[in-house]
Design a binder for these strands. Structure first.
Lengths: 147, 147
DNA sequence: GAGTAGATTAGAATAATTCCATTTATTTCT
DNA sequence: AGAAATAAATGGAATTATTCTAATCTACTC
């Protein structure tokens, strides 16, 4: 029973699954654990590699299945940047993403209610959005420019 | 020489290409014409079907080549919604997209300077973005709900 | 009007994701 | 506890959007 998933998160997962009549399998727990452990917006493939260190025989199809489940349970969000492979993110609060051209890193940019409602006001009358995706492409501060 | 592309747009295309040492070929002109003609955010495949009515032998690879060129020339923008096929849009002014869950239609949502700079202020100090993608998923006004 | 760089073409290749049929696990019922 | 029923995992095949490749074609330049 030694898994790295902390108690709080493990309970969150259990409850989210139970409320949908789904089971907290080893695979699902482990995938969720890996996503929480290193919050660098990994792709399904990245996650596969990391989970395999703990469950060496897990297949990529299962990774996709687990991820779908976690997304349905609203524990994980999908991040789409251009047409690059989908990345996954355990930040459940509303946020945007910043993608650095130099390092490839992806950062969360928090969107509080004030920001969210400012964005919603861009919509013409009669339009209502349940999902807002906002992403930035540019350069972060740690990029060193040598002149 | 009868092509549907209006004079202004034809000139815009010619100049944009010339400044990059590229040629205004029949294929490029026709692809651009089709994108301007029906601004419903078509995919490469949609565009292929439409262009084939005028140039029956054009290949999908050429459609992709032409689109790449038009994007480079900044005459056309790519629109990425989730992982759906890339769509193309001749609206060169800054704008967001609204995607209707019911009809699948995609609408432009204009982003004036005020809105753009409001969004830019979400970024932490030191981060600068050259590209901002904003998209909404929800329901538009023409959706009729029968209770 | 020939040469050359630029474009187009068809089809093969790639890559992310989904599908499918089978096997394995887990819960439920008795 | 054991059997039946349901849910999940698995490997591999299938799909789909897109890119690559190598050959052919076209259009400006001299």
């Amino acid at each position: 029973m030694k898994t790295s998933l902390p108690e709080t998160e493990r309970n969150r997962l259990k409850h989210a699954l139970k409320s949908r009549n789904l089971r907290p399998t080893r695979q699902r727990t482990c995938v969720y654990g890996v996503i929480l452990e290193k919050r660098d917006h990994p792709t399904a493939d990245d996650i596969h590699l990391r989970v395999r260190e703990k469950l060496p025989s897990i297949s990529l199809a299962t990774i996709y299945n687990c991820l779908d489940t976690l997304v349905e349970c609203e524990l994980v969000k999908q991040v789409h940047l251009d047409r690059a492979p989908t990345r996954f993110c355990p930040n459940r609060t509303p946020h945007a993403h910043f993608h650095c051209r130099d390092t490839g890193q992806v950062y969360d940019v928090s969107l509080d209610d004030k920001r969210l409602s400012a964005i919603e006001q861009f919509l013409p009358d009669g339009f209502t959005a349940d999902t807002i995706e906002l992403s930035f492409l540019g350069r972060g501060p740690e990029t060193i420019t040598v002149s």
